[in-house]
Write a protein that binds this DNA or RNA. Structure first.
Lengths: 351, 351
DNA sequence: GTGAAAGCGCTAACAT
DNA sequence: ATGTTAGCGCTTTCAC
């Protein structure tokens, strides 16, 4: 008794049928809520279900139906707040519609991304929410296209000719960051990013640069962009500072970049905002409790998830029409890590 | 062509069979690697598979087999690094064995936990990795027991009479934290935790208290334990400090507690480690880049995931024997947020 | 060596 | 209003 794990055979629809004295088809109808069943029989079925603890096997049920009530979600990683919240939201929205979400992590690899997609295709999922590693032009989206899969692209995407896309309005947020920094008097700013995430990082950089140059044509914007991994970026950043470059502010175009920038500041003994200002794209819980609190762009996770699922289910239900490309507005939180340049040490110390 | 999403019917095993001029049974055998197939026929089958791009439907396949090659994972949340890494690991280990991981978030709710479990039971998953919201005595574990499900319990558990358990060795890690703090001269320490996570928080507290009292019988250990939610904890902590309590160090028994402590320090203008020291259970990436870096207990995620899956698959493959209870050793990183009491301002400033 | 037959648990026509 | 039939796509005896 202690560690029995006997998988006792569960009651099937036939068990219910025979116990209720009807056919399996009738049981199925009762469960589907079809009105044309004699109330008396319906009651017997309900009783039998109750007594046997019967529950439909969703896989067997899907097997027979045309489409499976499964949604696949592919995220670049699960370790960050952003994607963690995203999966939580998507799961919740899928459940609300009676679907099960099966999430997988591509671990920032396009090869793995395609493998997962192939597996989801094998599973014959009804639809896929793909947050591609790089952008909408990768092999994964191509695979979806080639196989006529239904899907939505989110996050590191702009727009696509085959799939609906939903992402944060990076350009607008970056423009706002530019306005803030220029407004505070910064004229030498470093932008830090990872090139591989082309779709978003490019947009963020362009949105920032355009607005900054527009407001202050004399502003100098340096860019440190690593190809694809964080460690090379760290090295490049170190070299950049080692050469004596001394921007008054850093705009990190993605979360890990903010961490890297912060650790390079540490190494050099620079404090925010007195020695240098810092704003990052992507917020995290810790950013408001550290000292100084780190300024950040907050992505609208719920909106992205919500509109992605809306678009996806519309397509699943057969909606026609050209793909849509949604941009959800971000919020920018200018916290203590941003100050005015040249204010010298301690001038901007929190009270 | 732009937005075609025509779900073209995929090749079935019969399509392959007729193209190769054999029966479906033979195709199945070839795919299973059965040796008793004439090489010539096997080749024809392979060719047909290739030409049709045939892939087995894993769900249909599982339908026929006894057990489905699906592992369910239930985590209290997806938003933290710890559980994010855990899911990533579990997914990877499941895949290595040809299983698919279906992860779900209980969102810190025991009610939801049981619902998810029921759904996974409906799915007839081969096994479940459950990280219970509270501990091993909750309704979810009871459900698993009652239904003869195969499973492993991880994280917020100690040991169970029905399931194997794997968790971090909280007591040992807490003892080490105690040694460090007592060694540095702290004699008034506040421990902060959430009561609902009883299994782990209790252990951490006891391990800490026992060792601390043993080393310094005169030490004063205060405890602020909230029932179940973070916000009440914040309020209690605020009250505690408002009453004039002034411990020289805080040991947070879980991640959110560290955040809450930090934000209360902020509110009062206290800096670590000069005004107060801080160590938290659970590490996070940001803790090493902020100033000061936050001392933390690092949980061995990979080991926990690894041993959990090992135990689970052993049971799935029919291993008998009493449940095992593993404790995986943690590492304690004493970073700059911990100093000696009474060193006054700036005495412990990083170089 | 290979294939026919049976069926996993369910649902959707089609009869009745 | 209900039951019968025919599968969904696959695997597995069990004959041949």
């Amino acid at each position: 008794m202690a560690h029995r794990q006997d998988q006792q055979r569960r009651a099937s629809i036939h068990d219910v049928a025979s116990r209720a004295g009807v056919s399996a088809a009738t049981v199925s109808k009762v469960m589907a809520g079809v009105a044309t069943v004699k109330p008396e029989n319906a009651q017997r079925v309900f009783d039998a279900i109750e007594q046997l603890g019967y529950r439909v096997d969703p896989l067997a049920s899907d097997m027979r139906r045309a489409k499976r009530r499964i949604i696949g979600a592919i995220m670049p990683e699960f370790e960050s707040e952003f994607f963690g919240q995203m999966v939580t939201q998507l799961e919740s929205l899928a459940e609300q519609r009676g679907y099960t979400l099966v999430a997988a992590s591509s671990r920032e690899s396009e090869a793995r991304e395609t493998e997962i997609l192939a597996r989801m295709h094998d599973w014959r999922v009804a639809g896929v929410v793909l947050a591609p590693v790089r952008n909408e032009h990768g092999p994964a989206a191509a695979f979806m296209k080639a196989n006529g899969m239904t899907g939505v692209l989110i996050d590191r995407v702009l727009s696509d000719d085959a799939f609906d896309t939903v992402s944060a309005d990076s350009a607008a947020a970056s423009a706002e960051v530019a306005r803030e920094l220029i407004g505070k008097g910064h004229r030498h700013i470093l932008a830090v990013g990872l090139g591989e995430q082309a779709a978003t990082v490019r947009t963020r950089l362009d949105g920032f640069r355009t607005t900054a140059l527009n407001l202050a044509p004399d502003v100098r914007i340096d860019v440190v962009l690593a190809e694809s991994h964080v460690e090379p970026l760290r090295a490049q950043l170190r070299d950049y500072f080692a050469e004596g470059e001394r921007p008054t502010a850093v705009y990190s175009l993605f979360l890990k970049g903010t961490l890297v920038a912060l650790s390079e500041f540490r190494r050099r003994g620079w404090h925010c905002p007195n020695d240098i200002s810092l704003v990052g794209f992507d917020d995290a819980e810790w950013m408001q409790v550290t000292w100084p609190a780190i300024a950040a762009v907050v992505q609208p996770v719920r909106q992205i998830a919500g509109h992605a699922m809306e678009a996806l289910f519309a397509r699943i239900e057969g909606e026609e029409g050209p793909p849509t490309a949604r941009l959800e507005p971000c919020r920018v939180f200018m916290r203590e890590s941003v100050g005015s340049p040249g204010n010298g040490p301690h001038s901007a110390k929190p009270q």
